[in-house]
Amino acid sequence: MSKTTRYSGDEMWKNNVEKIQNSELFTLTYGSVVSQLCRDFNNNYQEVNQQLDRMGYNIGMRLIEEFLAKTGAQRCQTFKETAEMISKVGFKIFLNIQPTVTNWTQDGKTFSLVLNENPLADFVELPMGPDNRICRDLWYSQVLCGVLRGALQMVQLDVDVWFVKDVLRGDDQTELRLRLNKFLKDEVPAGED
């Protein structure tokens, strides 16, 4: 796409992004949060997922402003363009990874993002308890779903994001799925129609 070549993710990563030396601080901080949540909710992993999603949503609302400020991008015209922006530029400038976009449905409203590496879950293994609940219920990187949902909401796209597969659970790859529900209309000031 000609627009994404203008905002080349790689170039931006090299020149424009302030980096910290140690991504492990980031990984360990996230791990600390997940384990604290598990303790707070008494190992009710559904609740933990929801809380991570909520936190991600709040992060996403702020992240989008920084994304727009760094790339100067305008609103995308189609959902396909959005997918390209997210995978080529978004993930690159924030997490330094480049997921692949696959599995488009016929109507062009749902696609999958396959992450080949996940800095949130570097060196993480889920412990096996007596009933394997953690493997069944916990999506470790659920915060990413919230981030995408929050960020896209701020640019008037109502999407659902959920995990399909996760390497931590023993699957072969980590896969997220995004579905566009609708375009949100801009709000009208009181008194206008």
């Binding site: 989008i64 402003e65 727009l68 991008a73 609103r75 701020m154 640019v155 008037q156 801009d186 709000e187």
Partner: peptide, 9 residues
């Protein structure tokens, strides 16, 4: 002078 961001600001 007006400037509008993609997020509606």
């Amino acid at each position: 002078h007006l400037f509008e961001t993609a997020t509606g600001l």
